[in-house]
Structure formats: C-alpha cells, structure tokens
Design a protein around this nucleic acid. Structure first.
Lengths: 255, 255
DNA sequence: GAGTGGTCTAGACCACTTG
DNA sequence: AAGTGGTCTAGACCACTCT
C-alpha cells in the first residue's frame, strides 16, 4: 500500500487493495462509513470521499440505507491507461512497442486546427505510429500535437518510451479526454500497417486530450484491429448525478 | 428551472442552465465557490458537491488555485442516453422506432446465465429488435432479460415505447451499466436486418445493466452500423469511466 | 499577497434499508 | 427500531494560481 498525498486517497487505495485481494468478494458488503472512519482515524467525510472515488470507477454500488457492495467484473483502473497505449499494455500484462512511420512539422489542416483550438494553418507536429502488443501490430496511431508539445517529441525515444509518461515528466500533463468511437473498414494503408486484409473492421477512436486548464494538447485518431481490443465503459446514475427525467406517478390525480 | 430534491442538485442545474444559456461561455471563468455559496445561501460544501457533478460530466475544468472554467465541445448527456436507444435518439433530434423480430421465454445459455447472475438454465426472456432512426435501420439489438423483468415486456408496446422508460415507471430502475465496445464484420443475419453487405464493419456493444443494488437486469448485444453511430465518452483524471480491455491476437509461433 | 480550490473535521438531521 | 448512507453546515488549514 503506497502512501498517497491525501488521506481519502489512502483510504480509497486500501479499499481497492482489499477488494482485489479478495477481502471483500464480489457481492460482499463493505464496512460502513463509521467503521472505516474509526479504523483509519479519519472523519466520516473523508471516508465518503474515498467511497466516491470507487463509485466513480464503477467498483462498488451505493444506495441510501444499505451497505455498499462490491460490483463484479474485472476492471482496468485509471485515467493513464486510457490515454497511454504503453500504460494500458503494461496494465494487461503485454509488452508495448511502437514503430514510427512519420513525424513531421507542418501546417494544421482545418479539422486539426479546430480540434486543437489553434488558428487555421498554425504549425503543428504530426506523428504516425504503428503500436504493437508483444510484437503483433494492433493499432495505427495518427496524432496531431500542438507545437509547444510537439517540439518536445524529437527528444523522446518513441520506440521504447511512453510519450505520455515522458511528457508528464516535462510537466505536460493530460487531465481530460474526449473520445469518439466508431467502426470503419480498413483502407489500403491501415491494412498494410496492421497486416490485415483491406475491409477488415477497425475500431476507431478520435481523442482530444487537454491539460488541467482545458487547453488542447493533442488530437489523435487511433485505429485498432477489431479483434484486438475491447473498450469498456462503466457508467451509472451516480456518476452523472443527474436528475431522473421520469414522471413519478402522482397519487393525487391527473395532469 | 425545476426544483430538485437536493440543494446541490438545484445549484448544479442552475449552473448547467447558465452554461447552456451562454451566461458562461466556452472558456469563461465560473463564479468562485464562496460567491455561489452566498448567492444561493448554501454552504461551501454544497457548492462543491454541485461542481463535482459538473466535473464528472466533463462540463468544466477544476484546478487548485484557479477559477473553474467551461469546457468546450458538445456533450453526450447522461446515463439514460447510453442505456436507452430511444433517449439517445431523441437527444440527437432523431425519431426512434423499433421492429420486433422475436421475443421468447427460454432457458439461458451459459454466457447469458453468467452475465445475468442466474443459475445455468434458468428461464429468461430474449428479445431481438431492429432499431431505426427516422426509418433507417441502424442497430440490431439482442437483449436477455432476467425473468422478473422480462415478464413485464408483453405489456409494453415495443414498437413505439421506450422499454427502459416504461420499466422505470414500473419501478425497474437501471443504476449502473458496463459496456464493452468492439468492431466486428456483419454476419449474414445482421447484414440482412441492417440492409448492408456482409462483412460491413459494425460497432458492437455488449452491455450489462444492473439495478441500484447491483443485481443484473439485462444483458444486451447491440450491433450498430459503423457509419451510423459514434460513441462519445468523456473522462478525466477526476472521473474515469472508460477502459480498454485487451484481446491481443495470439502469435501462432512461440509463447 | 490575495484569492481560490483541495482537504479535513465534527457535528446534525433526514430517508431509506434491514432484521 | 437500529443502522446506514445522503445531505448540509460552519468552521479550519494548506497548496496553488494569478497579477
């Protein structure tokens, strides 16, 4: 168990550890807020903050009046796995690698300029890579970086290092990402790079990554072999915390 | 503006309204916590709870020391749009409809039993529908319902009503959903139902929906025309809802 | 240095689940 | 009826941003 900066993060990690270790099995009821508050010597609010994190991750249920329970299903944790191919590969026990097809500095196309929120024709860096899991090509990545970020790329060994992680060390931190996911047929170039027949179904994601202030850092179009990856989404009424739209049956009368 | 049950929900909705009304434009800085606390006559904690909801929705940024800002980009609303085709269709301004291919009560297959957390061979309801947007077939839906829920289906007009919304009125409420998204080639049956050539890329989602207590209610395999839909997901360091799961193509040689 | 968000505490009351 | 989570308050201190 690693010491985190915040108390609630420590408690949250302890609970995650307990769940993955099997102390709390699938469907098992977790300790109450007050129990945990006493155990860890923190206030109930801090325990609630820890639970909120696990709730957002889809790890546990939460209903008024009832103990929280562990939700089934294996989960991949963390924001970094979603934005970094390398981090994701390691998380599932695979060896990530990459082959750079092209890295150029050029004027942004109109769509790129729009996504990166830069003036039309502004200079950007564009990187094309094939990403491999244990030597097998599984994804073609075409990423446009804003100039400030792209200028750091030549100093990074893109075949072995994780760009995202290296950038983080250089204080370029990703905080938010929007993903658009659809399915397309492999064109000639993607088919060749992925070593599949033309027309093979590909899972394509278009992702815009932004820094903590909301400024776009990169815009990437990633095309995965359809048989190589599954995107998993967990969501809940709690995570979106939005009111129900329904019409509760009014006992009083008509409307 | 509708009165919500909780104070923080009222504040959150007021902020959403302000954003969509344009009071706070893209990139604009929002009022501080203390300002809002005074404005609405609530404590700072309540304001923070409201902001947390908007943060989880990907509507705003949040960094220590700096005012929160409005994030750009159109958003997918909430939980209901991901779990209900009808709700989603309406949200994008399309007319949803459905054509029932088959509704049967039968014994669950092993995978179905596992997903629905019922004993092997238990009775379930299985529904096959083609879903249409403005008359165009865009998705084939194959859903297994636990018996308790499926027994309600015959009373629902599945061609025009939203099953999810009708079930909510009957106190069958979805609270969580796990989605697995990948890309596959259309087989003969799907191709016929969707009126596309065999082999056309389809975006397939496998979804398990559970009630507030974590009990599975339905397991659905939805196959969308790849050119008809884009899934949008927002995630952030603050709230992670998306994950990739590996299914690496096995090299035939070593290992 | 002033302002702001992030964390934390110690209470309180209510709505809901459970035995 | 007891236990539990959901909401809310009123403070406090700290880390960080901004100008």
């Amino acid at each position: 168990m690693v010491r985190e900066g915040a108390l609630y993060a420590t408690v949250a990690q302890a609970l995650r550890d307990g769940i993955s270790r099997g102390d709390y099995r699938d469907g098992a009821r977790l300790p109450s807020e007050s129990e945990l508050a006493e155990t860890y010597g923190v206030s109930r609010g801090t325990v609630r903050q820890a639970f909120a994190a696990l709730r957002a991750e889809g790890l546990i249920t939460s209903r008024q009046g009832a103990r929280r329970m562990v939700l089934g299903g294996e989960r991949v944790q963390g924001f970094s796995e979603l934005i970094s191919f390398s981090a994701w590969a390691r998380a599932i026990g695979e060896q990530p690698s990459g082959r750079v097809i092209e890295l150029v500095r050029r004027a942004a196309t109109d769509p790129e300029a729009a996504e990166l929120d830069v003036p039309p024709g502004a200079m950007i860096y564009h990187l094309t890579r094939v990403r491999l899991l244990s030597g097998q090509p599984v994804m073609v990545e075409r990423t446009a970086y804003v100039e400030r970020v792209g200028a750091l790329l030549p100093g990074i060994d893109m075949a072995t290092e994780s760009i995202t992680e290296r950038l983080a060390e250089l204080d370029v931190v990703f905080a938010d990402a929007d993903h658009g996911i659809d399915a397309v047929a492999a064109g000639p170039e993607d088919a060749a790079l992925l070593e599949v027949p033309e027309g093979t179904p590909l899972l394509r994601t278009r992702r815009r990554g932004t820094d903590p202030a909301g400024n776009p850092l990169e815009f990437s179009i990633d095309s995965y072999r359809g048989d190589a990856v599954v995107f998993r989404v967990h969501n809940s009424v709690a995570a979106t915390a939005l009111a129900r739209t329904g019409n509760p049956p009014r006992p009083t009368g008509s409307d």
